[in-house]
């Protein structure tokens, strides 16, 4: 008994959003660096895979690796920029990068201009091409990889260094942390994972065009991470699931998506800045209290 194709597709798209939200979370959540152009790196990954597979006949797997590397390479440049440009100005720079990258896709013949790139092959394993279910498994594996990477970061010195960088850069430097290196690493890693998502997306869609990677998508990704809870792992996952399923259920919202997401961002910042499942959020505190209540009678007896 197969799962209906519709649900598989929704699952794949949700999974890709989870990867995007978690990869942005490494940059914005852990390291505290603004990035309003994450969709650009998603796009660089997608275009890298599309071009390498359609024009150079490269295998999907190799091209997927190249997608992550290409995206991470451009991301490391953004990381270097972040050493000189800070906070609000960095945010504006990242928006600029998003527009520049989309413009290059749109105006350079090599990238197929407005027509985009079609006929992107599906991956195959042992000579068998992936169907929808295969893609779902691939996305699930990629999500697990990104969650694993995030967890490894969270418990490590690297993660602690990123968090101190987010909290107070000068104090972090005085505590012996080479903040420049960690900024660049955070940008490189986060954008490489976005590139990975882009590669999978391109192959799944079989056709991509510049419009898939525009600034509104960057806001959507940021919104997912913020609504769920920046700086945690559960937060961006939950945010991605909620915000990618919501338009499926409320189709009519689609036309006003940006309005809704923008409003949501403002609302979250006002009432619940740590996100629904972020540290010390209302839901998390309730849950902890609930658990504490359950435990008390046991320990008392």
């Amino acid at each position: 008994m197969a799962i209906p194709a519709y649900y598989v597709t929704v699952g794949i798209v949700t999974g890709i959003y989870i990867i995007l939200a978690l990869s942005l979370n490494i940059i914005t959540g852990f390291a505290g660096q603004p990035n309003l152009g994450h969709a650009a790196f998603f796009g660089i990954g997608a275009y890298t895979l599309a071009i390498l597979t359609t024009q150079f006949g490269m295998s999907f797997w190799l091209a997927l690796l190249a997608a992550a590397v290409a995206s991470g390479a451009v991301g490391s440049i953004l990381g270097l920029i972040s050493l000189r440009v800070r906070e609000d100005f960095l945010a504006i720079t990242t928006i600029g990068i998003n527009f520049v990258v989309v413009s290059i896709f749109l105006y350079h013949p090599f990238f197929g201009q407005a027509f985009g790139i079609g006929g992107i092959p599906a991956p195959s394993l042992f000579g068998v091409a992936f169907g929808r279910t295969g893609f779902l498994a691939l996305v699930a594996a990629a999500v697990l990889l990104v969650v694993w990477v995030s967890r490894r970061i969270e418990g490590s010195w690297f993660g602690l260094a990123l968090e101190s960088l987010r909290e107070d850069e000068a104090a972090a430097e005085a505590a012996g942390i080479d903040t420049r290196r960690f900024k660049v690493i955070a940008f490189t890693l986060g954008t490489a994972l976005a590139g990975l998502a882009g590669g999978i997306y391109a192959s799944f869609m079989t056709f991509i065009s510049p419009g898939d990677f525009t600034f509104p998508l960057s806001i959507t990704i940021l919104c997912m991470a913020v609504v769920g809870g920046l700086g945690t792992i559960r937060g961006p996952v939950a945010g991605a699931v909620i915000l990618s399923l919501a338009p499926e259920i409320f189709r009519f919202v689609m036309d006003y998506r940006l309005l809704v997401y923008g409003g949501l961002l403002v609302l979250m910042m006002r009432v619940q800045p740590t996100g629904l499942l972020g540290r010390d959020s209302v839901l998390v505190r309730r849950w902890q209290r609930l658990i504490a209540h359950r435990r008390r009678p046991l320990s008392a007896s």
Binding site: L160, E163, S164, D168, A170, A171, I177
Partner: peptide, 21 residues
């Protein structure tokens, strides 16, 4: 640092760990 400047979002123990980076 002046004005204490601990990492406010990190726990006491995480702050100490950070110092030992």
């Amino acid at each position: 640092p002046e004005g204490r400047r601990v990492f406010p979002g990190l726990t006491v123990e995480q702050n100490l760990r950070m110092g030992a980076y």
